[in-house]
Design a protein around this nucleic acid. Structure first.
Length: 568
RNA sequence: CGGGGCGUAGCGCAGCCUGGUAGCGCGCACGGUUCGGGACCGUGAAGUCGGAGGUUCAAAUCCUCUCGCCCCGACCA
């Protein structure tokens, strides 16, 4: 690729609407341009990065027996009505009508189409198992697109689906995907964790997420510091054992706490550890009605955990509802005497605490769960760093991460309503057992930028770099430099090294800055050293180490850097 | 959907409070001098100030509505 004839619109300054590191750098390096909120154009270099990632994905998917297909972006409402998701999914689905008024939607995922296809084409256990995958554009009307390419409304996704006769076979398909995913992310040069994730309220037999640590991530995971333990889970479901406070020998009594609303104010007024207070939060659920959720004073309630415990969604009670139901304002409520369902976090099994008295301006001291009020104990609090691992007792770390992939055991959730059945060996009709598995190629790219960039720009992992070698011609009017650079450029290409030749009539500083910004792994500089000493410079973008050598040694020098720096 | 911020030349911004007919840097075009980490001098092109309505002799500036984008939160099958 010759810079002089290519669309690589690099920017000297950060774009005004980009905040996340990967967003700023990918726009500045001329990889992408934003057309609308969460809608991007991929420019030539960005397209090449996606191509590299997709090629790796295809190799690993094919290696586990995946068969590539392509399913439509536009889908009829019928199959979504049959699965129940036409109504279950809200504004996130783009919906439209054709000229005859028929309901259609833009595909945000393809379980329905897969089940539809399986229902028609799979008849016998002899047809199973199957792995179908595609790399296809997905459309989701995200409530809030954000962080550049990390959360967009239109995005490429590798989605695969497994069809198996039973759950044992599903387990094998699932394990095969986990292995393929590990190889894909290893090859792409990402750091990541595999964590347990919430299979969701709509059933499902289990799921894991692949999480790349990054400050720009939207999720948090808890991971055990003991490598031999290996416990790792999304904080949506991670369990931790917090350290207990020292419980004073309290007797139960009511104490006046005028003008006190928050846990911090209660503990300050009484001069006690926040861990001795109980936070009482009233919610309203459609079926369960009012629910009082209790967590320790220093903890945050995780709403996903509460939703899982209730088996339904809920909303916070309005302040006037709190007063009507519990007889006190928000700052003075508690479980004692409350005639509502009470869910208490597991840690509250032990000890006695301060709670609201359900009387304005008063709290109760010495309250014990189970003794002073009835409740169900469930895991409700959000894990914090430093809590003990529930499995091995070592400390947990909490890290911010980007979700780059997920694997999900669906079971028969789609095969039953869409009648995707097969006949088993005994001639009985059985539902196909499905799994679904996603990878976001753009998130891999953005994740690699987040994890690999430095103050001068991107540092691409070898395997997904848009090009391998960036050849700088220092002085375009020096025919010897041009000739040598052309020779190096040609030699690289002949030997399978993808090269950019910066043949623009620009000052060298501009070219060096651009080479760093683009993050091409190796830079070759053809300049004064050639004229004076007959050598060129070969420099690693990652380590910044530079060697000088005659031009015919460049290909070997680049290969040496690759063997040192590239993922195996 | 709740909260906050921003829309002025291709990009990044100032001007708005206190109304008087638009400016800076980069980029771009031309000429010249330069030439190893985003050069310098000169000349020039380029903006219905997001849109609509209103107030006013006069609106980028004040008022109302509206559209778009960003950030925090909710949501995220």
């Amino acid at each position: 690729m010759r810079r002089s004839r290519s669309l690589v619109p690099t920017l000297r300054e950060d774009p005004a609407d980009a905040e996340a590191l990967s967003h700023r750098l990918m726009v500045r390096a001329g990889l992408v341009r934003q057309l609308a909120a969460g809608v991007y154009v991929y420019l030539p270099l960005g397209q090449r990065v996606l191509d590299k990632i997709n090629a790796i994905i295809r190799e690993e998917m094919n290696a586990i027996g995946g068969q590539e297909i392509m399913m439509p972006v536009i889908q009829p409402a019928e199959i979504w009505r049959e699965s129940g998701r036409w109504d279950a999914i809200g504004g996130e689905m783009f919906r439209l009508k054709d000229r005859n008024g028929r309901d259609l939607c833009l595909g945000m995922t393809h379980e329905e189409v897969v089940a539809w296809l399986a229902a028609r084409e799979i008849r016998s256990y002899r047809d199973l198992p199957q792995i179908w995958y595609q790399i296809q554009t997905k459309e989701r009307d995200e409530a809030r697109p954000r962080s550049g390419l990390l959360r967009t409304r239109e995005f490429l996704m590798k989605d695969s689906y497994t069809l198996d006769p039973d759950t044992d076979a599903l387990d094998r398909s699932y394990a095969a995907h986990e292995g393929a995913y590990r190889r894909i992310f290893d090859r792409c040069g990402l750091r990541y964790h595999v964590v347990q994730s919430d299979p969701g309220m709509m059933g499902g037999l289990g799921s894991h997420e692949f999480m790349a640590p990054s400050a720009a991530g939207e999720d948090e995971i808890a991971i055990c510091r003991n490598p031999a333990c290996g416990y790792a889970a999304n904080v949506e479901m991670a369990k931790g054992v917090p350290s207990p406070p020292v419980f004073p020998a309290w007797t139960r009594e009511e104490i006046a706490t005028p003008n006190v609303r928050t846990i911090a104010e209660v503990s300050a007024l009484l001069g006690i550890d926040q861990r001795l207070a109980v936070k009482s939060l009233l919610y309203v659920a459609p079926k369960a009605g009012p629910v009082l959720a209790l967590v320790r004073g220093d903890h945050a309630l995780h709403e996903k955990k509460l939703a899982r415990a209730l088996g339904e969604e809920f909303r916070p009670a309005h302040p006037d509802e709190v007063r009507a139901i519990l007889g006190a304002p928000v700052g003075s409520v508690g479980p004692v005497g409350a005639r509502v369902l009470v869910l208490a976090d597991e840690v509250l099994r032990e000890g006695t605490y301060i709670t609201g008295a359900n009387r304005e301006g008063f709290h109760l001291k010495g309250v014990a769960a189970g003794r002073d009020f009835e409740c169900r104990f469930v895991d409700l609090h959000t894990v914090a760093a430093g809590e003990a691992c529930a499995r091995c007792g070592e400390s947990l770390d909490v890290e911010r991460v980007i979700e780059i992939g997920n694997i999900f055991k669906l079971g028969t959730k789609y095969s039953v309503p869409l009648k995707a059945m097969y006949l088993d060996e005994a001639g009985r009709e059985q539902p196909i057992v499905m799994g679904s598995y996603g990878i976001g190629p753009a998130r891999i790219a953005a994740g690699a930028v987040e994890q690999g960039s430095d103050a001068d720009g991107i540092v691409w992992p070898w395997a997904i770099a848009p090009y391998h070698v960036y050849v700088v011609i220092v002085a375009m009017k020096d025919a010897a430099q041009v000739a040598a650079a052309e020779a190096i450029y040609g030699a690289c290409r002949r030997h399978g090294l993808e090269a950019i030749l910066d043949d623009r009539d620009e000052r060298p500083g501009v070219k060096f800055k651009d080479a760093d910004l683009l993050g091409i792994p190796v830079r070759v500089t053809v300049g004064n050293a050639l004229v004076k000493e007959g050598v060129v410079e070969v420099r690693s973008r990652k380590t910044r180490e530079e060697i000088r050598l005659p031009q015919d040694g460049v290909v070997d020098a680049v290969r040496a850097i690759r063997s040192r720096e590239a993922q195996p």
